[in-house]
Design a protein around this nucleic acid. Structure first.
Lengths: 221, 221
DNA sequence: GTCAATGTTTTTGTATACAAGATAGCAATT
DNA sequence: AATTGCTATCTTGTATACAAAAACATTGAC
């Protein structure tokens, strides 16, 4: 579990939250986690502290930590900001990408094509992450890459839900094609707008999101 | 120092970093901080953990915490992202602002005018923060407000430095006027672009930034 | 039978103790 | 005189202990 216990705990718990193993609203008991991972409360507390700083859990004074359960409109807002940041990354990528970036982007895009054709949503989910990271990397802005990566992580659970919607994979892939085209042909504003559209949860996609959230809530009961 | 010790320590230390009391690169000794604030190492460690998650300090395994010393180009990247987020806030504000938002914005703008005319850079620094927060608030996107506020905080030390540059206050204020105009007359794209320009560290302003950073470095010696 | 009050238990918050790794200083050898 | 290796000390990382607050249950009264 990594050389650093706290780091490892943080990742482990974060993963548990992202994979819905710890559900939104669930209380995270320090002692329980400590016993489960075979450590004392101290590193557990420090890991929770970090998750709280990231915004994944909330620590209320003397009442312990609970997994944050954001309202649908808040998730919408998060996607809205993500859309803007990815648009920015795409715009910079169109201007700054190197040959190596080009290869990375095309490779990720090819992987997405395979998994989309195979209708394999788990693999597509993973390949899609590769694709987006390739765009971030091509922006060559270290800080932007960090911000995008962090927000992308935080939105993981919902992104996964969205893939359940019918045909979303195919649509997503064809949007990717246009994005690749815009970036590689060096059109910053086109790339920005396409990425914005690609990420934003607009129109029907918002009701889809709310519906899948409700479904997940029901599955938990 | 707040009801929550850890929270208080975090703010206190963060403030120390922002005001350059703890200089970039400086080692933060847990025992020293504990003695200074009259608490044990435990809450100090937890506060440092949080600062590390925010990105203000770096904790290297078994080597303690040091204040992060970002390279100029990284600060530039941070302003670049800030420009984009503020642009987004301005765009949303132009579409969504209420009468109350309008009052807030105009009030903050008037305060800026007074402090700019008085050539009082300390007051202007503060009123300028009010103004930008008024823009964030008018966006009515809770998540965006949080992100903007967090990044704004992190950029505080450099923002302060920039006001030292000759005439920056007057220029800043006249840019504010155009921004207010665009937001209140409901022109999202104009507001976005004006805010982007207002924040971005472009052209001469980048060399000004590097110069003032160097100056501050010299003052520390 | 229900509500309230009090006592118990559980859990968080902080302090301290202990272990292990890193740094620095000193000595010895080349 | 410089470099390397060893030892001592200092600092971090983790565990445990103790205090205080909140949740919970039990008992008694209406």
């Amino acid at each position: 579990m990594a050389e650093n216990i706290v780091q490892g705990l943080r990742d482990e718990i974060e993963n548990g939250i992202v994979t819905n193993q710890y559900s939104p609203g669930e209380r995270l008991d320090e002692m329980q986690l400590a016993k489960r991972f075979g450590v004392s409360r101290t590193p557990v507390r420090e890991a929770l502290m970090q998750l709280s700083a990231i915004g994944l859990i909330e620590i209320r004074a003397r009442r312990g930590a609970v997994v944050i359960d954001p309202a649908p409109h808040r998730i919408y807002e998060m996607f809205e900001v993500m859309a803007e940041l990815e648009g920015m990354a795409g715009s910079l990528a169109a201007r700054r990408h190197t040959d190596a970036d080009r290869e990375e982007l095309l490779a990720a895009h090819a992987k997405c094509e395979r998994s989309a054709n195979a209708e394999d949503s788990d693999t597509y989910y993973y390949d899609n992450e590769l694709f987006h990271h390739a765009v971030y990397a091509a922006s060559h802005s270290g800080f932007l890459i960090e911000q995008c990566t962090a927000l992308h992580r935080r939105l993981r659970p919902y992104r996964r839900l969205q893939l359940r919607v019918r045909n979303r994979m195919k649509t997503s892939f064809s949007e990717h094609s246009a994005i690749v085209e815009a970036i590689l042909s060096g059109e910053p504003e086109v790339a920005r707008n396409l990425l914005r559209q690609h990420i934003a949860v607009q129109g029907d996609r918002f009701s889809d999101l709310v519906a899948t959230l409700a479904q997940r809530g029901a599955e938990r009961q």
